[in-house]
Structures are given as C-alpha cells and as structure tokens.
Design a protein around this nucleic acid. Sequence first.
DNA 1: ATGCTCTAATAGTAATACTTTTATTTTTGC
DNA 2: GCAAAAATAAAAGTATTACTATTAGAGCAT
Lengths: 228, 228
Amino acid sequence: MKYLLQNLKVTINEKIYLKDPESSSLGKRIVENSILMIDQMGFESFTFKKLGIQIGSNESSIYRYFENKHKLLLYLTSWYWGWLEYQLVFSTNSISDPKKKLKMAIEIITRTIEEDSSFSHINEVLLSKIVINENSKSYLTKEVDKENKEGYFSIYKRLVARIKDMISDFDQAYQYPSSLASTVVEGALHQHFLKDHFSSLTDCNDENTPTKYFTDLVFNSLKENVDG
Amino acid sequence: MKYLLQNLKVTINEKIYLKDPESSSLGKRIVENSILMIDQMGFESFTFKKLGIQIGSNESSIYRYFENKHKLLLYLTSWYWGWLEYQLVFSTNSISDPKKKLKMAIEIITRTIEEDSSFSHINEVLLSKIVINENSKSYLTKEVDKENKEGYFSIYKRLVARIKDMISDFDQAYQYPSSLASTVVEGALHQHFLKDHFSSLTDCNDENTPTKYFTDLVFNSLKENVDG
DNA sequence: ATGCTCTAATAGTAATACTTTTATTTTTGC
DNA sequence: GCAAAAATAAAAGTATTACTATTAGAGCAT
C-alpha cells in the first residue's frame, strides 16, 4: 500500500491553481512549506510574504501559482480529501460484505493520521492537523455557492457520497444516509479537535478513539438488509 | 415564554468586552448592526470602519467596546449559546421523564430559528444564521487554549454538558455521552449549513428536519435505563 | 546567439487593523 | 444651573496585508 501511494498524484480541479505546483520545484516547495507554516502559525497568521522568505523566493512568484491564500487552502484540503479517498477505495474495494466494508470505511475516515509516507513533499500528518483546524474555513465563506459551482469541493463531496453509498448498501431502509455520512466525516474532524482542546466535550482520547465512537454510532442506527 | 425572554439578559464573560455593550445606546447599536452586517457581508469582509459608518459613529469608539472583531464574534456567539441555554432550561425544567426531556432538548438545539423576539436589539434569526456560518471561526484559532482558560467558551461548554447529563440520565450505560452531545450541537449547525449550500450531502430539508435526523440518531444509540 | 519561460527583485497601491491625540458632546453630581 | 467627569467623534498616523505591475536576469531549447 505504501509503495502504491508514493506514486499517487491527486487530481485537483485546475481552477484552484494558476500553475500546477506539481510541475516545478518551486511549486513543490510552496506546497511543502505552506503545510509546515500553516501548521505552526495557523492560517490567519500565514502570508505569502512569510512563505516567500521561508523558501528563499519572492512573494510575487508564489502569486503565479495561487491567486491567494484561500485558493492555496482549497488546494491543500482537496489534496487531503483526495488522498483519503484513495485510501478509502483501496482499502474497501476488495471487501464484499457490506458491514465489513462500512466498518473499514469508518476506520479510514476517523482514524488519527500518524504516519507520513515520507516520499512526497507532502507531510500527511501535518496536513491532517491542518484539515482538523482549518477545513471549515475553506467553505464557511460568502463565496461558497460560486466556488461549489466551479467544482472546488467535488473531491470532498465524492468522498461523502461514497460513504453514503456504503451506508445505503448496508441498510437500504435507512432514511438519512447522506446526513449520517457527512456527520461522520465532519464529526470526526470535530472530535479530534475536541480531544486536543476541549476534552470535557468529548469521550474520545487515545484509547477511546473517534473510530470506536463513530462505529458504535453508525451501527446503532443501521439495520442490515434482509435478503429477498 | 416570549414575555419572559424579553427581560432576559445573557451574562457574558466580562473579559470578552472592554465596556459592556448593554450599558449604552452606542453599545447596543454596535451589537445590533454588527449582526446585520456580518449576516450580509460575512465575517471576513466585516470591519469596524464599515460598522462605524453604518451606525454613524467612529471606528475608534467601537474599539472602546471590543478589542477587535474576533472578540465581537465571541460576544455574539456567547450571547447566542446563552440564549439557547435559557430556552433549553426553560423548556425542559418541568419535564421529569428522561426520554421526553432529552427529546425536547434535541428539538431546542437542532430546530431552525424562525421567530425573532423583536423586543431586544438582537435579531435572533439573523444571529442563528451567523452562528451557523461563523461559529467555528471563534474557536479554530491558535489562541483557543488561552481563550478557553480565560473562560470565553464556558457558556457553550455548559450547554453541551447539560445535554450530556440528559443523555446519561436516560442511559447510564452509554459510553459516549459527551461526544454524542457535542455531535448533536455542532452537527446541527453543520446540517443546517449543508441544507443551504451542499444539499447533496444531507437528507435534511424543510420537511425532513435536522431535528428528526438527530432525534433518530440519538435514540438509536441509547437504551433507556432499567430500574433497580 | 536568440528567443522563451520562469523566477527574483523592486516598487507601488489600497485596504485593514489598529493606536493616539485632541476636540466636542453628554451625563452626573452637587 | 454649573462644573467636573465620562463618553464619543474626528482626524491623523502606523504597520501590515494582500495584492499588482514592471523590469531584469537565469537557464534552457533550437
């Protein structure tokens, strides 16, 4: 699996960037170091000027890759969801039992990312922390409907749709498959955040993982299809 | 109930403001119009300069009430959660049956706010829209731990704790009462957002309300205590 | 050697997020 | 009704942000 992932190129909507950051060394340094810096200082304090200094390049050169830092955030979150989707598909593809399949899916979506593939310039551990802290900011904007129409969130939507399909495959009668799927994806980020900053608002910790909580939650709501 | 609510003053942590906006007409205009403007233009585009122009006052006068717009957002969200908490306590207080109590609580937390009390300067309908769109930004910051220690989120935490207690009262054996409570509170905001902007990611709409979804979700996970 | 693309450097602009100072108005205490 | 105190308004200033525009040089391809 690791071996396969190192050759992975996540396909990201071309409108998100001006020039593909994967196409040059400068582009890769922009992505690599923006992850390090946003993780360290948070998205609000992060600027292209600071990034330029860090990578020994110029602010204006970064603007040739991304229109603004919001687009860069969309790039990073899209990459993350694309990477997760790949893992989801890869890990569930061979499972035919709908229950086992859904169980695996919940695990992939809710687990803590602890291992960096260390091959690409993208540090997945830090990126997952960025997604926990900054993902909401990518869509909680006044431009969300316009950007949604442009397809900026399509990877994320496809991921939620895949989970929804697995829910419906397991229990055709369940009335809220999309809501449950989005609750698991977004709720997982939230429980990870609470674990780190508001421990009184969650029962999750290193033993009692979000995976266990959401697995319990989902399977309490679903009833396996009866054949025939 | 309406009559009672008009005399309500939500108590907000004094460190959030420099001068209590409830203490003067200018303060009330700041709060009233910031709600209108943030709803209209979004939190990112909203500035104290624009607010000053709108209320026929000066930027520097607004700074005597709130250190910055982040603190103003904390004020608004705290007010909202305090207002919701009041409704929660008021509506569930007289209910002794744990199941009915929890059911009512879920309804209060997840319903669409459609009626403005129209007595105070605070428009609760618009404020609830602001909370849906901007609440996460109040805590997804690098300062969250410091601000949490200062008690800026205590009303929100108390609200979640109340739901958690109701969950545990109904089912003492349930392992994730805090996580479930926080999932309902945060998930309700998220489902409302999806309903308006990503309808393919939710089953909720005007008939199939978030209240129905979360009521189903919660009671599927819980088993009523057996006496003795 | 020439042209092309990419990147770097510099400078500039408008807006933001404030702070400071001073003047004016309003409130209040007596 | 008047003086003192408090609150507000106006104006100006600063540092930073979020860009845009222009120019120049480096490296490579033909």
